[in-house]
């Protein structure tokens, strides 16, 4: 075999492998605070997929308020997967455009939520107002920062967590409504999204306490320094389940159904769960959750299904036009 044929053979092999190794592009449309999580995860998935199938996969990310992102998908944004802040926003993809089946949440384990989070407080260093639990937020003179639940998915979790606390402590819905009304009386600024709210609290020095996603609070500590802020964990909070789903109509058109499905399933793998934990999302996998137990404090967590009868019911009762949230602002 001379040198020439060797080169030719090498070229032929390279050409053949180039022909079989496809280059795939996925679009993951997500909400605000997952930016850092998916930057990590996409790199890991690309490596895994390359090893498994030999194909290159590039995952593009789009982030914004959860509701706004859902609307973009309804209006035609070609999202292969939607990873949003709450199930109601993925339900909207079915309700408004039939982009996926109604029972999408049953297709993956744990209500299609590979990681969970919860709602905690971010306070200024030294906790000058002595905030320990939800009932400290309704005290006169305490200024609370939380976004508008009408425009922000995270803010809806905040609101429902406060409601659940009051219901458990004081026993009735009417007491809970009074509690939540008193809490929002202490809110000087209703930003439209979770990131805006964090900015108001951190950069503009507005408020004594910000109600925040757990991962967002940890991220603020990491970004702005643990010497300026502290995370306070209340006695009770809500188990926030940000779900993920393949957008059937889009992947069918783009021919990416298999890789999109694998992309979401890999979130449940050991590596996917590790990445979630590293980015301050609570892993579902018990073994990996145990590894991160020192990061995530123990507290009583209630679920939206047990407490509020699911998203559809909660949405209608609390956040729809004329719902409880509107009532507490009606004079």
């Amino acid at each position: 075999m001379n040198f020439k044929t060797l080169v030719l053979a090498a070229l032929a092999v390279a050409a053949a492998s180039a022909a079989t190794a496809k280059s795939i592009e996925l679009l993951n449309v997500s909400y605000d605070p997952t930016r850092e999580l998916y930057v990590d995860y996409n790199a890991a998935f690309a490596k895994y997929w390359k090893a498994k199938t030999g194909d290159d996969v590039v995952v593009k990310q789009s982030h914004g308020g959860s509701g706004k992102q859902a609307r973009s998908i309804i209006d035609g944004l070609q999202a292969d997967v939607a990873t949003l802040a709450l199930a109601a926003d993925i339900d909207a993809l079915y309700d408004n455009a039939k982009l996926l089946p109604a029972d999408w949440q049953k297709r993956l384990p744990n209500n299609s939520t590979p990681y969970t989070s919860t709602i905690v407080f971010l306070v200024r260093k030294g906790n000058p107002k002595g905030i320990k639990d939800w009932n400290d937020l309704v005290k006169p003179g305490v200024s609370v920062v939380t976004p508008n639940p009408k425009t922000s998915g995270g803010a809806r979790w905040n609101y429902l967590a406060a409601w659940a606390y009051a219901k458990h402590r004081y026993g009735s819905d009417s007491a809970a409504q009074k509690f939540v009304a008193a809490l929002y009386k202490n809110v000087p600024v209703l930003d439209s999204g979770a990131r805006g709210s964090t900015t108001t609290f951190v950069q503009r020095a507005i408020g004594d306490v910000a109600i925040s996603w757990e991962n967002e609070a940890f991220l603020a500590l990491k970004e702005f320094g643990a010497d300026k802020f502290e995370v306070i964990v209340p006695s009770l909070s809500i188990l926030a389940e940000p779900p993920v789903a393949v957008v059937d109509k889009v992947v069918k058109k783009k021919g990416t159904a298999d890789v999109a499905k694998a992309y979401l399933e890999y979130l449940y793998s050991d590596e996917g769960q590790e990445i979630a934990g590293r980015n301050f999302y609570r892993p579902r996998n018990a073994a990996i959750a145990a590894k991160y137990a020192s990061v995530f404090p123990q507290l009583q967590l209630v679920t939206i299904d047990a407490e509020f009868g699911g998203w559809t019911t909660a949405q209608k009762a609390h956040f729809a036009e004329g719902g409880v949230f509107d009532q507490i602002y009606a004079k």
């Binding site: 308020g65 509701g67 706004k68 009408k150 439209s192 036009e321």
Partner: peptide, 27 residues
Amino acid sequence: VVFIAGNQPAHSEITPLIIITKLEQYD
């Protein structure tokens, strides 16, 4: 305006924000 208004319902909420709010709720 949305950055500086405080956006309190029925107090410092401008009409364009009401429109956005309704859109966010798929209305």
